[in-house]
Amino acid sequence: MKIRGRAIVYGDKIDTDVIIPAKYLVYTDPAVLGQHAMEPLDPEFPKKAKGAILVAGRAFGMGSSREQAAIALKGAGVLAVVAESFARIFFRNAINVGLPVLQVPGITKKVREGDTLEVDLEGGYCHNLSTGEKVEGKSITGLPLAILKSGGLLNYLKQVTI
């Protein structure tokens, strides 16, 4: 599974309260949540998120179990998240809602805002097409890949149980 898009870059420890503040957790609609994604950190985010690949530092998605964090990013139009490391629950949630995620240590030093990236999940790398550099990460295989290919856990379960 390969995804191509334009990079938006953030730092370390982007937590779930920043990705989507608790006051919006009474909604699950991706379009509504997308309008408020990253609001405390970057109110302009929803305007630039469509077709973007979000690049971040360590512990992306740390904090709460709110699945709305992954839904909000997807709802805002983010195509994939590439981070140096992810919090466990966010990583699962992203896969479950069909938002591709890839762990690539050192990625924030190799990408600048606006670079064009190609993310290869099975290959486990992020190719910076603007600089030509390929950065190796941890490939997505097995069940998580199958869930992502189905578009999320809900679709996956429909396919395997029917």
Binding site: S65, R66, E67, A70, I89, R92, N93, N96, V97, G152, L153, L154, L157
Partner: peptide, 13 residues
């Protein structure tokens, strides 16, 4: 362990 909503839904089912 904490899990997200879809994971818990699938676990309940």
């Amino acid at each position: 362990q904490g899990l997200g909503a879809t994971d818990i839904a699938a676990t309940l089912k």
